Simulated assay, not measured.
Amino acid sequence: MSLSAFSDYLSLEKNYSKHTVLAYQRDLEMFQEFLNETYDSESLDKVNYPEIRQWIVELVNSGVSNRTINRKISSLNSYYKFLQKVGDLESNPLKRHKALKVGKKVQLPFSEQELKQVLETAIEINDFESARDQLIIELFYATGIRRIELVNLKLSDIDFSNNQIKVLGKRNKERYIPLIETLTGTINSYLNFRNELPIINDKEFLLLTKKGLKIYEMLVYRIINKYFSKASSKAKCSPHVLRHSFATHLLNEGADLNAVKELLGHTSLAATQVYTHNSIAELKKVYAKSHPRNRR
């Protein structure tokens, strides 16, 4: 079975982008080159797991990251599954393969000083867009909601009488998050500008474009990146970093881990524990400064 048939399958049936298809092709061609050099032109279709394992060892010894190796093996696995689907292969040589362990990247949150700089000095509120941008930043930092959750917020989700908002999370699970006083004021300020828009098409949604349409995820990312790239030296200035900052700063101030889990909409405590890395660092500072045996 030629690689071109597999590429056609990825393009036409799986509807993968041209860039993705080329990435699959490069991975398979690289493995074929390894087979040519090591096993004297053995075919991709005929290999067994030991040959693949040897390629993995060579990649590791060459300094290729586990994450990249896993991606290359995933390309191979897709190819062998395709061969099984069309009846050209009985058994997938990767059926018992286990992916290499990949360490989780620790994502540093924005500092409280960076947040203060953006929230207090970066935006001069004088029109609809500036009021909306301010609200988006405050919503992320005051509630920790996800970007898609923010995009889908409706006017009816804001409960001023009980100072809370309703958020529709993953798997359509609802949760309620308290509104702090400053955020309530920012929402009201934004709504005043929103009411002055000449046309509002998506009336039920809270956050809109200046054309009165529901805001979209890429615009939200651009807004966050626009303001925080000026205040922070971090390579990544995204909505998720703001969500990370919300959780980390709460934990640094002594918030209960289970309470933060509920606010974030996590189903398991393990997902929330990712945010304790920086909190533990902060705890060590407090411990070193406060413990009686350390004050001598």
Results as ranks from 00 to 15, higher is better:
residue 148 I to T: 15
residue 149 E to C: 12
residue 152 N to R: 07
residue 152 N to L: 07
residue 155 L to G: 07
residue 155 L to H: 12
residue 162 N to Y: 12
residue 162 N to I: 11
residue 166 K to V: 10
residue 167 V to L: 03
residue 167 V to H: 02
residue 169 G to F: 10
residue 170 K to C: 06
residue 170 K to F: 05
residue 171 R to I: 03
residue 174 E to Y: 09
residue 175 R to N: 02
residue 175 R to F: 04
residue 176 Y to Q: 04
residue 178 P to A: 04
residue 180 I to L: 05
residue 182 T to G: 00
residue 183 L to H: 04
residue 185 G to C: 13
residue 186 T to Y: 12
residue 189 S to L: 15
residue 190 Y to E: 04
residue 191 L to C: 03
residue 195 N to Q: 13
residue 197 L to P: 01
residue 198 P to F: 04
residue 199 I to F: 06
residue 201 N to Y: 13
residue 204 E to Y: 11
residue 205 F to Y: 14
residue 207 L to E: 08
residue 208 L to V: 03
residue 211 K to A: 05
residue 212 G to R: 00
residue 216 Y to H: 11
residue 218 M to R: 11
residue 221 Y to G: 00
residue 222 R to Y: 12
residue 223 I to D: 01
residue 225 N to P: 05
residue 225 N to C: 10
residue 225 N to A: 10
residue 226 K to L: 01
residue 227 Y to C: 05
residue 228 F to P: 02
residue 229 S to D: 12
residue 229 S to W: 13
residue 230 K to G: 00
residue 231 A to D: 05
residue 231 A to M: 08
residue 232 S to T: 07
residue 233 S to F: 14
residue 234 K to G: 01
residue 236 K to W: 00
residue 239 P to M: 06
residue 241 V to L: 11
residue 245 S to H: 09
residue 246 F to D: 08
residue 248 T to R: 12
residue 249 H to C: 09
residue 250 L to F: 05
residue 251 L to R: 09
residue 251 L to G: 06
residue 252 N to H: 13
residue 255 A to T: 09
residue 255 A to M: 06
residue 256 D to Y: 00
residue 257 L to Y: 11
residue 259 A to L: 10
residue 260 V to P: 02
residue 261 K to N: 02
residue 261 K to I: 05
residue 262 E to T: 12
residue 262 E to R: 14
residue 262 E to C: 08
residue 263 L to P: 01
residue 263 L to H: 04
residue 263 L to C: 00
residue 264 L to I: 07
residue 265 G to L: 05
residue 265 G to R: 01
residue 266 H to E: 03
residue 267 T to D: 08
residue 270 A to S: 11
residue 271 A to S: 15
residue 271 A to M: 15
residue 273 Q to S: 03
residue 273 Q to H: 01
residue 273 Q to I: 04
